[in-house]
Design a protein around this nucleic acid. Structure first.
Lengths: 329, 329
DNA sequence: CTGTTAGCGCGTTCAG
DNA sequence: CTGAACGCGCTAACAG
């Protein structure tokens, strides 16, 4: 293993000098900088991130906290997009990453969770899809022990930022388009999980729209479950002009139910999953770029680890009307 | 941050003594062991895995090398199952894990890849879905620089093990069931990616069956693509009694095509994805427990890191005939 | 059975 | 602008 010492010897300088060019310190002459860089390249030296983390204390080690709902396969797609984006961007920014599932910390106390991350020299965490029920994580955020970026949860403090799309606006816009294009007067809205941050924002959107357009609105709780959406559709859809769901998965349940009921209603989902391609129906949806969301989350975390003050970042979304069959074939 | 030094002071022993009880060394009296453990608990001490890795050199640090095919969403499910299993088992065995995508190393040279893992103090790697085209990884395996477990690729040497199901037997069995239950005389077989390890094993299975049952067999290359399977089905399915595909995804393409052609043929897939639930058709398939496969891979890697000699592990599979709609609703 | 002493590879003062 | 020296938290011989 070629270490910083070898590079120093090869370049005829001190170890600390190599370290300094490695970390872009000032006060290094161009001459020695080039000399050192040449040696680094020649020896194929790669800094040992483990040692760097140990030594510096302010390591660029980051944890991704992912919440894959294993029951419904849909979430896999979103989680993988998150992962893919984060790993890519982290490599780009030379951050070290560990992947953690919610399940791995769910029966740990706050102290244990903190100890766990500390033992890994973690200094920043990205939490995907935090729910209000995750008590320990909420405490963790409050302690400000780590720099944290939340994806899809609006909590902000000195060391916590939020990255998400404008849920309210997105829901408003897509529903408006469905209503307008189909000249609807009434809407059945199947909401997401109770106490969910996104659920509430989206609800605000549809409520605002109902008010603005004087719609007859019925809100039911679908818990982000296909089965629930299916049942609610059987029960209430016939009396309404359109069905707007807070997720694509529920939209599938609705569409299947409508087919069985043998009636037509415009259906609207939320997320823009590729999975929808396998269902082969037509619908409206909101496409979120999950990978990009995650990319930005990493960038934001990097910023947060250097600076103070968390903030909220709103990412773009698009409204789409899709004949999903096209995507696949 | 409470370190091993604090524990030593608190327990009134030397640092090395604490280290020894931490790592279950022999030659420590029960008395001091308890004393130390008490201090550990009292101080809430958690060993710094980073420092341990630096110092020991034979760290329990492991890399998961995942190959998520981003074009088709199906693969997400498999990848997440792999990840989930590996992370769970790794925590169970107190191994440190980093997650790496193929894309992150695909334009690196052998030396760079080795340097990358070394720089992370990685000593073991699990590679999921290695293809024959991954030249650098093949070289990496040959160098024996790391302990490696391959999931779904049959390469074995002193420091490389393989974990997978009996692909040939699985393909043989499921196809046999399709043939028998439907009294078929001829079969269209849509194979996977050319040069893929599993592709070839599965091919052997269907060829053996064709021989044993004197079937009229046509083999076509579907490249694991739904679209390819679709095209091949349009082209050849009419003349055959059944269509056997080397993956569930291709089975979807086949089923859709058959529907459009308005003919019925029994269809057979491979993998047992939950995704199939959204397609809502009936078919045969082989269910692999990907999570469990990954679990075993971690166990095997742990064994490999202590012992010499790689080996091959065959995991169980099941043959199923599914009315997939049931799963969801 | 326990304590002492070196490092692991790197970051970081602080003299020079 | 450069280098010697110390320490991060821990493991691993070697003494005792």
């Amino acid at each position: 293993m070629v270490s910083i010492k070898d590079v120093a010897k090869h370049a005829g300088v001190a170890i600390s000098t190599v370290s300094k060019v490695l970390n872009n310190y000032p006060n290094i002459s161009e001459a020695t900088k080039e000399k050192v860089n040449a040696s680094i390249k020649e020896l194929g030296f790669v800094p040992n991130t483990i040692a760097a983390a140990l030594s510096s204390k302010q390591s660029g080690r980051v944890a991704l906290l992912i919440n894959p709902v294993t029951k419904t396969q849909v979430i896999d797609e979103i989680s993988m997009q998150y992962l893919s984006g984060a790993l890519f961007q982290a490599e780009e920014m030379r951050l070290d990453v560990i992947t953690v599932f919610f399940s791995m910390i769910q029966n740990k106390s706050l102290a244990e969770v903190i100890a766990y991350f500390k033992s890994q020299n973690i200094s920043g965490i990205i939490i995907y899809g935090l729910s209000k029920d995750d008590k320990v994580l909420h405490e963790l955020i409050k302690t400000k022990s780590f720099k944290i970026v939340l994806v899809d949860a609006p909590l902000i403090n000195d060391s916590t930022s939020t990255v998400w799309i404008d849920q309210k606006k997105a829901q408003y816009e897509v529903a408006k388009r469905v209503i307008t294009e189909n000249k609807c007067k009434s809407v059945l809205y199947i909401a997401g999980k109770k106490n969910g941050y996104v659920t509430e924002e989206r609800l605000k959107g549809i409520r605002q729209l109902a008010k603005d357009m004087e719609l007859d609105l019925l809100v039911k709780n679908g818990e982000f479950s296909e089965l629930s959406a299916r049942k609610l559709t059987f029960q209430f859809a016939a009396k309404y002009d359109a069905v707007v769901c807070a997720s694509d998965l529920m939209a599938i349940g609705t569409m299947k139910a409508l087919t069985e009921m043998d009636i037509f209603r415009p259906v609207c989902g939320f997320d823009g999953l590729m999975l929808m391609g396998y269902v082969g129906k037509q619908m409206y949806t909101i496409r979120q770029n999950f990978r990009n969301l995650s990319l930005e989350a990493v960038k934001e975390l990097d910023r947060l680890m250097k600076v103070e003050k968390g903030r909220e970042l709103i990412m773009p979304h698009t409204i789409e009307r899709l004949q999903y069959l096209d995507i696949i074939c």
